[in-house]
Amino acid sequence: MDHNHTHSEKDWQAIRTEAIESLLNEIDVLSSDDVDRVVKHYEENVGPKTGASVIARAWVDPEFKKRLLADGLEACNELGIGGPETELLHVVENTPTVHNVVVCTLCSCYPWPILGLPPAWYKSSAYRSRLVREPRKVLSELAVVLADEVEVRVWDSVSEIRYLVMPERPENTEHLSETELNALISRDHMIGVARDIELNG
């Protein structure tokens, strides 16, 4: 048991964050309810399954897919998905000869309203610096081994554009419903650090 009464157990980051929020409350710039709403939304409503629902719809609805590739955000809005955090969404499609993968080299831009929060590794210096320099090697470390004839396209989210990878629909899935297809798609497929989609059962 800690008997040290002179030190708080809070991290300095927690203290500073709380102090900033308290000051913003005090000067009526922001209420804690405003912050609560954002946190709750991201903890409970938005996540990779949001993005998976977009991809599954595109797989079953060719017209939707065309609209999604033409204007990602507008098509997502049709499904009630979106938010002020993303202004432009570019959906990039994997094909037998193209593999797409997304990074943000300068910070960690990510399509929050579509995929939720990025995983910790997406924000790491290692991923951000290495993916652009040696994408095949990084992908192979993540068990995505690409044949030489497959072109790798790395999309860097440094401007206002956010990217979402549309994986290829696996073969022999014609009998699956949109919900069942949704369950096959992971966050990593939509970032591009996974390629093959395994059918359950």
Partner: peptide, 17 residues
């Protein structure tokens, strides 16, 4: 998938709000 610490959640929420 979400926040590792309560303060990072508040920080993210504060920034967007």
């Amino acid at each position: 998938l979400t926040f590792n610490t309560p303060w990072s959640a508040r920080l993210f929420g504060m920034t967007l709000a």
